[in-house]
């Protein structure tokens, strides 16, 4: 699959050497000595000469291209291009058949949303708390709302600009879909929707699913579902 990193070139720096100014440049300063050497009867000219020399040196310093070795150290920072590898990337893909430390992802239910039988799981792999739902809501607004809309009805901004309209989350098919199915859509995409595996961590994907569940409940709730003490509040606001 074609992929990932946008390399960032450092062209801007090559094109524009940053002139250095400062006390670090001892060598040119030594040239000032010429004024002393010339201490002869025609001394009256010397201060002027010295001044011009000084001005020339300072100007040269201010506009010359100094080496910037400490600014641009020969090391890789994220996304810095590399001359060494054919594809120009300093970030290397995993060698085939290897697993990075801490990425065994052994817990299949948690990482794929599917049970041992290959079917999406119903239950959450961890207990859902209010914090999780709030986190899910925040992530949903970042990653899903642009298309699905904040209410999950499928009327997001990108859809208004011409993207295919997704189904509302509040249709029966999706209300009855197991949580593992929703997790699977985020992880592997669905039809016109690309996958969000690279952008969202597994735990956040589950949090988003929890929030979608909450949305589905909220959009199909009646006043009877509201606890009596909160009901008064709602009625008052109406």
């Amino acid at each position: 699959m074609p992929t990932e990193t946008g390399d960032r070139s450092r062209e801007s720096e090559v094109g524009r050497p940053r002139p250095g100014v400062g006390a670090g440049h001892a060598r040119p300063a030594a040239h000032l000595d010429r004024a002393k050497v010339g201490r002869t009867p025609s001394s009256a000219r010397d201060p002027l000469v010295a001044l011009f020399a000084l001005a020339a040196v300072l100007l040269a310093l201010a506009s010359s291209a100094c080496r910037q070795d400490m600014h641009d150290q020969p090391k890789y920072i994220p996304l810095r291009p590399s001359d060494f590898f054919a594809d120009g990337r300093s970030e290397r893909p995993l060698a085939e058949g290897t697993v990075a430390r801490g990425h065994l992802n052994g817990d299949a239910e948690y990482y794929t949303g599917k049970g041992p039988d290959g079917q999406p799981v119903e239950a959450f792999p961890f207990p859902v708390t209010k914090d999780i739902i709030e986190r899910g809501g925040q992530r949903f607004d970042i990653y899903c709302a642009p298309c699905h809309g904040r209410l999950g009805d499928g009327g997001g901004m990108i859809v208004r600009r011409g993207f295919r309209r997704p189904p509302s989350y509040h249709i029966d098919r999706l209300r009855n879909a197991p949580s593992g199915y929703l997790y699977g859509v985020i992880s592997s995409g669905f039809g016109a929707m690309q996958d969000y595996a690279a952008q969202i961590e597994p735990r956040d994907r589950w949090a988003i699913v929890a929030y979608v569940r909450a949305l589905q409940l909220s959009q199909n709730a009646s006043i009877g579902d509201v606890p009596p003490e909160a009901r008064e509040q709602l009625e008052a606001r109406k």
Binding site: E4, D7, R8, S9, Q68, H71, D87, R89
Partner: peptide, 20 residues
């Protein structure tokens, strides 16, 4: 083109602190 071929887009850095 980048998506088809898998080559990276080379953005030009805007913010760049010295490496030290």
């Amino acid at each position: 083109a980048s998506f088809r071929t898998g080559t990276s887009i080379r953005w030009t850095r805007v913010y760049d602190l010295p490496d030290f």
